[in-house]
Design a protein around this nucleic acid. Structure first.
Ligand code: MN
Ligand code: MN
Ligand code: ZN
Ligand code: ZN
Lengths: 144, 144
DNA sequence: CTCGTTATTGCAACAATTCGCAATAAAGCA
DNA sequence: TGCTTTATTGCGAATTGTTGCAATAACGAG
């Protein structure tokens, strides 16, 4: 039984990449936060611990970790956010009224993915979608 | 029978906003382009016609026109792109292998929207989604 | 443990995007 | 047409994100 951090470390090395202190720090921060965070939020936390780490390194690390699927990125209300990827994908509903964010299981999209494969010969990679709209309370408030 | 530009002009005024030369120019450019364009592409074209128009105005105008739904924005292979909104929404499939972009009709998402309303009481506003994945030729190339 | 390869970093310049604020001008009205 | 209101612009500066390159350091081999 490996910890999540150990599994990630192994994955990075297996792919021929290196586990640097900068990468570990960013993973620690995201692991402790346990929620969506913007690049700036992450950079600020990195700074408060290791001021020598450069901004470019943070951006490059976030992109790198997304590419090897250790992280997932998403756009929520116009902001790019990052988090550690779950073993099973999840998605989000975002209310444009109250800005509330809810989690959505992957199964809602399986049907869609099947259609895209059937009808368009396209293997969709639906990882971490965000769907904007209006929640029930906000709809009631708007129409009432 | 109104032209598309006239309808947009009317919409802007009806909502209490103003139709400025800057807004008209940006709409003309997008209308002539008739495809996805980045903010930088649009700014460059604006510059070549009206060098006095400021970069901030272009960004503010693009955001404004998206908010009132005259434009739709999207993220394609990591870049934010804009285009004039069709009367009927469309979406895109983007292959991460060959970067090819295809159009997808709205009907693929009606089922999903219905589920979200039923099961989550959420009125999804699915306007202009982008789904990344692999097209058939790229899958064949990868596995073959 | 030491060495060599090369992935990764820091740096610095650059490009893209956002923001506050004072000046401008669109649109409705007399 | 001329006046008033205030939405919108331009400007300058701050913030955020990207890039080329030389210096550094992770990690496998010996
Ligand atoms: Mn998430
Ligand atoms: Mn489109
Ligand atoms: Zn809401
Ligand atoms: Zn392809």
């Amino acid at each position: 039984m490996m910890s999540q951090q150990q599994e990630i470390a192994q994955r990075i090395r297996e792919l021929g990449f290196r586990l640097t202190p900068q990468r570990q720090l960013i993973l620690d921060i995201l692991s402790a936060l346990d929620r969506h965070a913007t690049a700036t939020e992450i950079y600020d936390q990195v700074q408060s611990v290791s001021p020598a780490v450069n901004r470019a390194t943070v951006y490059r690390t976030l992109n790198f970790l997304c590419e090897i699927r250790v992280l997932v990125a998403g756009t929520i209300s116009g902001k790019t956010v990052y988090e550690i990827a779950d073993p099973t994908p999840h998605h989000h509903l975002v209310c444009t009224g109250c800005k509330h964010v809810t989690v959505l299981g992957d199964h809602h999209f399986e049907e869609l993915a099947a259609h895209l494969l059937d009808e368009h010969d396209f293997q969709a990679d639906i990882d971490h979608l965000t769907i904007h709209g209006l929640c029930q309370p906000c709809r009631a408030a708007a129409s009432g």
